[in-house]
C-alpha cells in the first residue's frame, strides 16, 4: 500500500487540516516511509491474538447517576474566542 498525494488530500480533509502544496508533498513522502516501516507488523501471525486497547483489567466504569452542579457560565466562557449572551459564537454553519 502506498499513499498518493490524493490520499493525503483526502486524509487532510478528514482531519480538518489545510495543507500547503509543499506540506502535501512532504507528508506524502514521510507517511509513505513511516507506513512502509509499519508493514513489518504484517510479518507477524496474530491469528487468534486478542487486541489490547489498554493494559488495565477495567472495562466500563460507571459512576452514580446523581446530579451535580455544572461549571458557572463565566468560567466556561473565560477562554471562548467569541461570545454573545452567555453563548459561544461561531460563524454561520449553513450558507
Amino acid at each position: 500500500m502506498s499513499i498518493t498525494l490524493k490520499d493525503v488530500e483526502h486524509v487532510a480533509n478528514l482531519a480538518r487540516l489545510e495543507l500547503s502544496e509543499q506540506e502535501k508533498e512532504q507528508f506524502t513522502g514521510q507517511l509513505n516511509a513511516i507506513l512502509k516501516y509499519a508493514e513489518k507488523l504484517n510479518s507477524l501471525d496474530t491469528e487468534g491474538v486478542a487486541a489490547t486497547s489498554h493494559v488495565l483489567p477495567i472495562t466500563n466504569v460507571m459512576r452514580e447517576d446523581v446530579t451535580k452542579e455544572s461549571l458557572p457560565i463565566e468560567k466556561v466562557l473565560l477562554n471562548a474566542p467569541d461570545e454573545e449572551d452567555g453563548q459561544i459564537k461561531v460563524p454561520a454553519v449553513l450558507e
Binding site: M1, N42, T46, A51, T52
Partner: peptide
C-alpha cells in the same frame, strides 16, 4: 485501513505485553 493498521497494532501490543 482500520483492520490493517490500528487493529493489527493492538494485537501486536498484546504480544509485546
Amino acid at each position: 485501513y482500520y483492520d490493517a493498521y490500528y487493529l493489527k497494532a493492538q494485537k501486536v501490543r498484546t504480544l509485546i505485553k
